[in-house]
Design a protein around this nucleic acid. Structure first.
Lengths: 157, 157
DNA sequence: GCTTGCTTTCAAGCGCGCTCGAAGCTTTAG
DNA sequence: CTAAAGCTTCGAGCGCGCTTGAAAGCAAGC
């Protein structure tokens, strides 16, 4: 299957220094990085760090996905824990998990360890979905590369 | 980067016989396969072959993305050419290209070879988007696999 | 010739996930 | 003291990509 080789190349090519929001997320998941900045973040700072809008962060809270503390004047304060939670939420959303499923999962998380078997099953499903998506993207990628080759005058490829 | 190894494994594991709609698309793009069945397809057959609904096929036609012929009673007849076009559309949609961009691209295609440079640029953009998506999915996959490992009692991973 | 199931067109509706706007409070800078 | 920037809640709005429904025509079997 040509897709495999393609994606391999792509990932290999993405090793250099990159500065996307995704890479910021990646750093954030590293506990060392996030623990180092122990001061809680405002909604705007948190939004910038995880690559979501402040509106979205408030929306997620309203939906029960995250529960930042509040300071004396009622302002949200996102802890390292909250930020890691947000990074998780962002990744699951980006990978196509629905808000409904995400709410269900977080509810289970907040219900304690007894829900671990069900949480595990949800993650296994999610893993399957992501794997399938990667394969689909591989096909789309082949298609675009084929078109590009043709447009470049090498229709034999 | 661990993502690379992960996706490599995933793609390697997807070598066996699989029967998803995506695989059907894959076969369809092979000209030999599609040329062999030279008889035009009804909207329902076409929909089944490319993994879209009949409603969606009519919608795509209405949006100018495909132009199937009509038989004596006004029924649509999808040729091999139309089917290949639909497979292309399905893949571009699945990979996140918007209807607006897709309409623009198809318009260029129908305007002839003089638009090839612009078409090429669109495909290059699309290639970038897909590559970025694959990297994002890699991170989401790492996250799910980490959770699963933890739930399986191996929190060291 | 009747029924069943496919097809047609057209316009309206919808579900998801935000996104925006209004009205008002707090903090910071000058 | 004032102005600007950022925060709060609330509810309404929206854009995308279909999806559905209605009303009617055509095709195949009994």
């Amino acid at each position: 299957m040509a897709t495999e080789a393609l994606i391999e190349r792509i990932l290999a090519a993405s090793d250099g220094p990159s500065s996307s929001a995704i890479d910021a997320l990646h750093e954030l998941l590293d506990d060392a990085t996030i623990e180092a900045s122990a001061t809680p973040k405002s909604v705007a700072e948190a939004a910038r760090l995880v690559g979501l809008s402040t509106h979205t962060l408030r929306y997620y809270e309203q939906e029960g996905l995250v529960r930042p503390a509040r300071n004396a004047s009622g302002y949200r304060e996102y802890s390292a824990f909250d930020l890691r939670r947000l990074v998780f939420l962002a990744r699951m959303r980006l990978s196509g998990m629905t808000m409904t499923d995400l709410k269900r999962y977080i509810l289970l998380v907040e219900q304690g360890p007894s829900t671990i078997p069900e949480r595990r099953r949800i993650m296994l499903d999610q893993q399957d979905r992501i794997t399938r998506q990667i394969r689909e993207l591989g096909l789309a990628l082949e298609t675009t590369e084929y078109k590009i080759r043709v447009y470049d005058g090498h229709p034999e490829g």
